Amino acid sequence: MKVLHAVNMKHVSSGILNQMTWELESAKKLNLDWNVVFYVQEYNEKNSSKIVKYWDGNSRLNWVKFRQDYYTWLLEQSAFFDILVLRHSLSDPYQVAFLKKIKKPVYLVHHTLEIQEILSNNGIKSNIKAWVEKYFGRLSLEQVQGLVGVTNEIFNYENRRVNSKFKQKIIYPNGICYDNKILIDSRKNKIPELIFVASFFSSWHGVDLLLNALENTSEEFILHIVGRLNPKDEQQAKKDQRIVLHGHLSQLEIERLMSSMWLGLSSFALFRQNMKEACTLKVREYLKNGLPVYSGYKDVFCNSFPYYRIGEPNFDNILEYARKMRYESKEEISNLSKQYIDKEILLKNLYLTLAQNHNFTSTKF
């Protein structure tokens, strides 16, 4: 069974590029006929990944020509594949036209609650874009073989847009590639050390809620914040000596820092995106590096999984969990997390589901 997973966007997103690169690496390890292409409009020499296909047209033109060329290319490519897996293209009438033409099975992958996310930005332009997505997004869903959500919440949301058409729930969370690297445990400080990582702390990260909660505790701890804060949050963070602001760090520097941490923190204000569930890359990086997680939202982990705690941005609760996890083995945390976050395992499950749906029995496992 040959599968093409394709994404089209104006710019290369580093997070999406990482996910797709790891997916291709996992497919090779599993010996799957699974190809990955990131089709983008604007060229950036820094993005030299082999999976990125740059549009041959004039980037100054509007996105209409770009989308038309993408779907023309996709239709040509479909002759070489049995199934297409496409990241849903937001507010895109050309996606509907393509889906009506193609004869191969197509699965749409959804990563967010599209209409709610669009409307979170106020304005006439957002209202128009939301209307286009509401209409053409539903038409796209009516044309495809199946729906893939990165969380249960997203799958259920998209399924309601077509009156629960898709009875089979296919969940394909974000994942991370495991390696054979030995984890170093540098937890020597007797004071709890916590880490919160983001490239830029948006409102849905809720770092402001965490900073406000500092006023309610006099306990000793060190909170390491890695990434860029908005000016208001940065000024507030600098007032508390228990916070260390690192700014931007390389991946290697972050991993070294995590080796001495007791606990990783994730977002506390996903409600600002009208969401209750997510599967962020940072949580997967924490767990892979043997760091338990305290977060404000539901992820893919079962309730009995001990290394992911859901709670409010309350330091009494955070520190209680950090102390409980203090002597847990980093290797054990990483190993027990693997079944939920390893890209190879997640891709294998998705591939088997697609193969079973279309009677491809000659799988390689």
Rank of each mutant, 00 (worst) to 15 (best):
S259D: 00
I115G: 04
G175N: 04
V7S: 09
E220P: 03
D208N: 14
N212W: 04
V293F: 06
N317M: 11
Q241R: 14
E277M: 03
L139D: 02
E234D: 10
W34N: 04
N349I: 01
N121I: 12
G146T: 08
R228P: 02
H5N: 13
K10G: 13
E219N: 10
K101A: 10
N216K: 15
V40M: 00
S329W: 04
W73Q: 02
V12H: 01
T361F: 12
Y135H: 14
E42L: 05
Q241T: 15
C279G: 00
D56L: 13
I222Y: 10
F98V: 04
H358T: 09
Q77F: 00
T151Q: 05
K100H: 09
E220F: 12
N18E: 10
E142P: 02
P306T: 11
S266A: 12
V106C: 09
K65N: 12
K188P: 03
Q339R: 14
K65D: 07
I83F: 05
G264Q: 00
H5G: 02
N314A: 08
E25T: 14
L249D: 10
H5C: 10
R323C: 12
V148D: 00
L99D: 05
I254L: 12
P173V: 12
L346C: 04
S78A: 15
E285H: 04
P292F: 00
K2L: 07
V148C: 01
F268L: 05
W73K: 04
S14P: 10
R284L: 11
E255Y: 10
K276D: 01
E344W: 05
H248V: 12
W73M: 01
I184D: 01
M325A: 14
K238C: 07
Y321S: 02
M1I: 06
S26E: 04
L291M: 09
H5I: 01
L257N: 01
D82F: 08
A237N: 04
G175Q: 06
S78Q: 08
T280D: 11
T217K: 06
V226D: 03
L252H: 14
I124Y: 11
L336E: 13
Q235L: 12
S91D: 13
K125G: 09
Q241Y: 10
L108F: 06
P93G: 01
K348W: 15
R87A: 09
I154A: 02
Q41I: 06
K103D: 14
P173G: 10
Q116T: 12
G296V: 12
S334R: 08
I51M: 04
R272P: 11
Y107F: 12
R326Y: 07
L287D: 01
D33G: 11
V144Y: 03
V283W: 02
V109C: 09
N189L: 09
F98K: 09
E331S: 15
F81E: 03
T151L: 02
D185Y: 03
K348A: 11
A27Q: 02
K364I: 15
K29T: 13
K282E: 08
A237C: 07
